[in-house]
Design a protein around this nucleic acid. Structure first.
Lengths: 181, 181
DNA sequence: CAGAAATTTCAGTAATTACTGAAATTACAG
DNA sequence: CTGTAATTTCAGTAATTACTGAAATTTCTG
């Protein structure tokens, strides 16, 4: 018995599938996640497979990937033998997880590669220049990373208040200057 | 005549190739860009093809893609008939371009899809819930987008000073509160 | 602990994406 | 305008990634 998607939910699911495929996430995993996010009740693998017409095994692999990203919670429903999955209710929670995971998978390895290369002795003029650029990159990436770490600490309401702070980060800087006087 | 890469530059180029392939950028385009960033002088397509052992046509397509992302500048060297390409010297310039381009290609379409779906009348309880989640997503994405727009405005030194502001965004918020008193 | 339900694994295949070489086009020097 | 150097296009192929179905494994129930 297949539960068909309403057109509205379908559109959203398809869109996030496409978007997912532009990130590392593949299309079907993107669709599965959108479905979970949009669903009030937890879903089991069969429901997902039915709703999206994917094979059961594809859903199994997709859920495993989502779990490795810590984007879904596995839960057991009393009286049910199957395993049910759900996404966090709070979208900010989801965003924080995504940011953190991408940092772990993409930024951290890059920083460590750059650090390694910066320890080497430049062999010639070209390598000197290349190292200088790597140093710039390393510094910038570390800066941005620090930023995301800070963001992780905020809850949604603090985030809102930070962003609504007159709309401009420039103003925050001005304020800092005035405050420090 | 092929100009071979030094091991240091080679490692960095390969690493960014791998990283690129986790983003939308494909491996070879990632490598080409790393090479351009690490090179002090502009390079022509043949030099890139030689250094990375790619076909000339692949380099041509890659450069076209990098141009469409506005990540490289085409320049003519006096007396040379070939076209030379270079990346901006300032890595922060590069990061800003990347952020802006990704916003245009990924975030903006998502916002507009969500807006469209939010205009529809929910047909039932499920759609009501789904719309509520979409509203949350839309609000959050718009917030984060606003943030990146603000970031675009900063130059590197302002960015540094913002980030070094005691290390914590939380402190910025505290400061705001104290300041407003 | 036997049997059934649920999940996972994985080899094979399908689909997509990336890359090349040859041909076409464009840009330029004389 | 002609010939040549440089670049681009694109059809074909290679490489990668995604997906499925069948079989194996695990999990649970009675």
């Amino acid at each position: 018995m297949v539960e068909p998607l309403t057109p509205m939910i379908q559109s959203c699911v398809l869109h996030f599938g496409e978007m997912g495929s532009r990130w590392g996430i593949n299309r079907t995993v993107g669709q599965m996640y959108a479905l979970l996010v949009l669903s009030e009740e937890p879903l089991c693998a069969d429901q997902i497979a039915g709703a999206l017409s994917f094979s059961r095994s594809n859903v199994s692999m997709g859920l495993k990937e989502l779990q490795s990203w810590e984007l879904v919670r596995l839960q057991h429903i009393p009286g049910e033998r199957k395993e049910f999955y759900s996404a966090p209710d709070d979208v900010w929670e989801i965003a924080k997880t995504l940011i953190e995971q991408r940092r772990k998978r993409e930024i951290d390895p890059t920083l460590s590669t750059l650090r390694g290369l910066l320890l080497e002795q430049p062999a010639n003029r070209k390598e000197e220049y290349a190292q200088a650029r790597m140093r710039d990159m390393h510094e910038m990436i570390e800066m941005l990373t620090q930023w995301t770490v800070e963001i992780q600490r905020l809850n949604q309401s603090n985030l809102k208040s930070l962003l609504k702070l007159g709309g401009s980060l420039g103003k925050v800087l001005d304020m800092k200057d005035r405050f420090l006087k």
